[in-house]
């Protein structure tokens, strides 16, 4: 049986379930904190896969309700844009 520590939660940034559990046990109990430390949710999909799983894990370990856990901040852009594309945009007013 494959080890639980190998379960990949954030596929974009290769963050495992055991890494996330370790951080929650240390007291990092918001998805934003976990994002800053591990980069989970900062890859091409911007958290569409891992965000719900991380919040559920925080809720399970801390005993909090999902709605009591502060949501991550959603900043534009929601998908990666090359810097050159922004620089060349005709809309630079």
């Amino acid at each position: 049986m494959a080890d639980e520590k190998d379960i990949v939660i954030c596929r974009c940034e290769d963050v495992t379930l055991s890494k996330i559990r370790e951080l929650i046990e240390k007291g990092y109990t918001t998805p934003d904190e976990i994002k800053r430390i591990t980069r989970a949710g900062m890859g091409p999909c911007q958290g569409r896969t891992c965000r719900d799983l991380i919040i559920r894990e925080i809720a399970r370990i801390t005993g909090k309700k999902i709605e009591e856990i502060p949501m991550t901040t959603f900043r534009p852009p929601i998908r990666p844009i090359k810097l050159g594309v922004l620089a060349e945009s005709e809309d630079d007013e």
């Binding site: 900043r75 534009p76 852009p77 929601i78 844009i81 090359k82 594309v85 922004l86 060349e88 809309d91």
Partner: peptide, 18 residues
């Protein structure tokens, strides 16, 4: 994205045109 300060949306066609 949506930018609250001026009410403008950004849009990206393919990966080339913003």
């Amino acid at each position: 994205g949506y930018y609250t300060d001026d009410g403008v949306f950004g849009a990206l066609t393919g990966e080339e045109r913003y």
